[in-house]
Write a protein that binds this DNA or RNA. Structure first.
Lengths: 151, 151
DNA sequence: CTTTTTGCAAATGATTTGCATTAAC
DNA sequence: GTTAATGCAAATCATTTGCAAAAAG
């Protein structure tokens, strides 16, 4: 008995991605499905290399260029967000709902952050300047709990 | 007759940087002064290469590694903010006061944005998680006025 | 005079590209 | 069958590093 409130099951995630790809006239490949599924399972900010390591057991011949291409595709589909950083590779955030980030300027760590923030006025102001907003993200830089404690 | 409300004059900017450097036991070099001055004069988001081009007339032998090192130093001093981007070099923002950014995901353009936004609650929430906030920036991605009109 | 900063050349690291092969459709 | 996607190798681009020479204090 599957309650209607249940979290999306794995094959369901696959079906959603497949549908989105077909909508765009693009092909449903095992690489795309496995990378997409792995991101959902990892459920944290990961680099392209980390994605590669995570999927290699299930896709022995996978290559880094394919991982990058797929991550870019998933970003276009809106299921992944790329977070560019100084002093390190970009991270990919699999959380699809709007949320914010805490970025440690000492260790580079990026944490999700659910900020109490009303973005309606800001979004309207951006639109008032002719800008067509897509996403609004608050980026808080500082020292994470660990680095603040250390020194 | 210099009104007291006048914008900081160039030599004044130099003196402020020199003082900050001496405070940290670092040396006041012409490269640092000229790069700092150029950023203030450019008054827009620029890449390290663009900074190099801007200062070369005044510093014929300047090198890109020095520009990078100086920009990093100025970031530590809080007079410049680095904005990392996908698909392009980092940009350096010479505006010292808190403000936000509109990032075009079509052409990559980054504009300053004075958002009507109350960050006190968000800052407090970050602190509540043990994070020591330093800066809060809203990043709005979407299409800039030009790209929205075109595409 | 001592130590930091610079410029240069070279290294590094992330990401992208070209192209032949493979797999979707 | 046709066309898009993949894997590989190599290229590219931004940024950093090592080290001898120059400049600051």
């Amino acid at each position: 008995m599957t309650p209607v409130t249940q979290t999306t099951t794995a094959p369901d995630v696959d079906r959603q991605l497949a549908a989105a790809l077909r909508n765009r006239g693009q092909r449903v490949t095992s690489q795309r499905l496995v990378i997409h599924r792995a991101l959902r399972e990892l459920d944290r900010h990961v680099s392209a290399e980390q994605v590669l390591d995570a999927v290699r057991p299930r896709l022995p011949g996978i290559s880094l260029p394919t991982v990058y291409a797929t991550l870019e595709l998933l970003e276009e589909l809106g299921t992944v967000r790329r977070v560019s950083r100084a002093h390190g590779p970009a991270l990919f955030d699999p959380r699809p709902d709007p949320h914010h980030h805490l970025v440690c300027r000492v260790c580079g760590r990026v944490q999700d952050f659910d900020a109490p923030l009303d973005l309606d006025a800001a979004t309207a102001a951006a639109a008032g300047q002719g800008f067509a907003p897509d996403r609004c993200e608050l980026v808080v830089s500082g020292r994470c709990a660990d680095c603040a404690a250390a020194g």
